[in-house]
Simulated scan of single mutants.
Amino acid sequence: MRWAALYARSRQLPAAFGALLVATSGVWFLGRDSWNAILVALALTTAVAVAATGLSGQDPDLDRTAALPWPVRRFAHLALIAIVAGAVVLGVQELGSSAVAASIIVRDAAGLAGLAGLAATTAGGQFGWTLPLAWAAVSLFVPSGTSTTDQVAAWLRQPAETPAATWTAVILAIAGAFAYTGWGGRR
């Protein structure tokens, strides 16, 4: 068996992909007539959360001592989560009559994947879902004001032309990718 198939099985990628499809489709089905940025944020958060549970294997020591260069594979895994989650949401929203801008979906998918990487690095791969879910839950209660603090806290719901939201997502994506690529999931 090739290393890619073994890696995918050890990280439960087939099950995560199936759960990602079901969860995203379920969110779209429930809000198909009123598809908006909040539902996109919910769908992306759900997609990233179910995929992020596999950010570490069953044996962290084995991951750290393997002969293969893990940083490249870790980065690819995190990037794949963002790409697949964004692509599924982009595809699902095409089934309805209303759509959210692709730039918002790409921004949110990258930022949420970065949060998953940070969570996996600090709490362990099995808890990669915690930070994306926590930030999404908190952002729903932040008023959509014009202050920079509100725009940073609710970056998932901001329009595409909001610099504070874009920079927040970029910083989270870079920090999460850097942390997870360099150190992997915590024991």
Rank of each mutant, 00 (worst) to 15 (best):
L6D: 13
L118F: 07
V142A: 10
A5P: 04
A123E: 09
A51E: 04
I83Y: 06
S56G: 15
A43H: 05
S97H: 14
I83T: 11
F127A: 15
L20F: 07
V152P: 05
R73S: 06
A160V: 13
V106P: 00
W35I: 09
L115T: 04
V142L: 10
W183V: 03
R64I: 02
W129F: 11
L62N: 11
A120V: 04
L156I: 04
G54K: 00
D63N: 03
F141A: 13
A179P: 03
G182R: 12
T45C: 13
A37D: 09
L55S: 04
A47I: 06
A85I: 09
M1Y: 01
Q126N: 12
S144N: 14
V152K: 06
A169Y: 04
A15K: 08
V142P: 04
T130P: 00
A164K: 05
V100P: 02
P60E: 09
L118Y: 00
S25H: 11
L44S: 06
L95R: 11
I83N: 00
G128E: 07
F75M: 14
R32Y: 12
S25E: 09
S147I: 09
P143H: 10
L78H: 02
A101C: 09
L42F: 10
G176E: 04
P71E: 08
W35H: 08
L30R: 13
G54W: 00
H77A: 09
G31A: 14
L95A: 15
R186D: 05
S144W: 06
A154W: 01
V92H: 02
W35Y: 08
D150E: 15
I104S: 06
I174A: 14
I104D: 00
T24E: 14
T148N: 09
S98N: 13
L42W: 06
A16H: 02
W167N: 04
L78E: 02
W183N: 07
D108N: 15
L21H: 08
S139H: 04
G54R: 00
L13C: 00
A49H: 00
R73E: 01
W35L: 06
R157A: 13
A19C: 13
S103I: 12
T149Q: 14
A51F: 04
W3P: 05
L131R: 07
A67E: 11
G57E: 12
A37L: 14
P69W: 10
Y7R: 12
L80C: 12
G125A: 06
G117P: 07
